[in-house]
Nucleic acid binder design. Structure first.
Lengths: 252, 252
DNA sequence: CGTCTGCTTGAGACATTTCAATACGCGTGG
DNA sequence: CCACGCGTATTGAAATGTCTCAAGCAGACG
């Protein structure tokens, strides 16, 4: 509510409404669209930005829109009546929010960083889906990727130790940040609380395991605890207990 | 390998190759198809049956087909190198197996009971998807339902106690068996080991929690431990710690 | 400088696992 | 019919990993 839609405090990244210049054009739900379809999408789209911590959608809410996350990072969480919370997914740029055919959100969506969504009014989008195969096909691809990721995460939640869980998450973030050069380095987008929620642990356990990994030389932690580096990725993977077949927690 | 494809030892359920008579016709991936599309599917389909315990696909296997589970029940499991196993899904009649666009199975698929699949050769199926919207749209729906289910399960694995997990699973099975009449009753398709795998617990803990629920009068267990009944479903839901918004672990 | 928020660390409580033994249901063969 | 063995389920006691509660610490900000 304290946002002026479309203004945003960053240098022009979204100033253009032109889909052709969109940074995630080739990875989002619109990836396979060309002239006509893209025009149609462009006509119905609008941008909106949320500040860190703001709620994008409440569990059970009726969402009048669907959309693509263009910038920032958001979490999907589910809750039990007594307050226990479990993060069930993370949205990164190019990820799709909402589902055609159902307007009630099955989980809460919360902005972690400044987050901008490219929104489509639901009904128009559903019509588009019905008409054209490209959006629908891409959406199917993306959903199947998310499903694979969710199942990888079920393995983590069901069978991995606290140490393995933390190592797995750090490995994921580090691979994302891929600087190619030997000492991998990454800034954590998630605080300890969000990490704990994602991993099915408590804040304290996450903190302890990070300290333990640091003591064991698996990772190094910069002051503030939000930047980590990893001298040897193989060691980290070992600590994560991963199969050698690379897991894909964050879908492409 | 000891199977004669399409023969099956049961009374005619699948004797007909006619899709119109298929028991799950209206719920499977072909639900929205009519004359032409259905003909095309019918031409490329074939049946195959697996015995209990048989492996339908190994983790990492290349599957030359996709298909629909017509009869029986199968599990999806993922493993860690050291042997820990986590079930990540269950297939019931009308569920889809495999994913278009990727031939390697990300998990192991195992028959629990006698299981029959209606198979489609992969390439033909992918062509069909590209051509016609109905299959693709239905598949998207089903995938999104599965994704919701997977996320519900993440909440269970990440935050629920052993007692709650067992109660949740029993509630699910009981709701499926829905006899409508007050004393709900169901035969468990899964043994204790499979239940433990699904719930992220050990066999012993599952057994103990079932005993505890019985002691507390929440459920009754028939001899053999494979049939359970529930005098009061509300009590079971309470023990499951569910939100009042009905969860949909098994997608439609 | 004080307060706030987020992170770390410690000690004890607790839930689940582990290891080990026992019981049950059931088909097989004597 | 009983004895036997086998797979599956139950139960017990001790070990262990994670949580809970509580305190301390560091950086950010007014």
């Amino acid at each position: 509510m304290k946002q002026q839609p479309g203004s945003a405090a960053m240098p022009g990244t979204l100033a253009t409404q032109d889909c052709g210049a969109c940074p995630i054009r080739h990875r989002a739900v619109c990836a396979k669209c060309d002239g006509d379809e893209l025009d149609r999408l462009q006509q119905m789209k609008s941008y909106r930005t949320w500040a860190p911590g703001e709620t994008i959608a409440l569990e059970g809410d009726t969402l009048p829109f669907v959309g693509t996350l263009v910038r920032g990072c958001a979490t999907l969480t589910k809750s039990l009546e007594d307050g226990r919370v479990q993060m069930v997914g993370m949205l990164m740029p190019s990820d799709f929010v909402g589902r055609p055919g159902r307007s009630a959100a099955p989980y809460e969506v919360t902005a972690v960083t400044d987050t901008t969504l490219c929104l489509f009014e639901r009904q128009g989008f559903e019509r588009l889906i019905a008409d054209t195969p490209h959006v629908s096909t891409r959406l199917l691809e993306m959903s199947l990727n998310e499903l694979d990721a969710a199942r990888d995460w079920m393995l983590l939640l069901g069978r991995k130790t606290a140490r393995e869980r933390v190592a797995t998450l750090l490995g994921l973030v580090l691979r994302r940040a891929a600087t190619q050069t030997a000492p991998l380095r990454a800034e954590l987008p998630l605080g300890r609380e969000a990490m704990a929620s994602f991993l099915g642990l408590t804040i304290e356990t996450v903190s302890r395991q990070i300290s333990a990994l640091r003591r064991d030389g698996v990772i190094e932690v910069a002051a503030g605890g939000r930047t980590i580096l990893c001298p040897d990725f193989a060691t980290l993977r070992l600590a994560a207990g991963d199969n050698d077949n690379a897991e894909q927690i964050f879908p492409d």
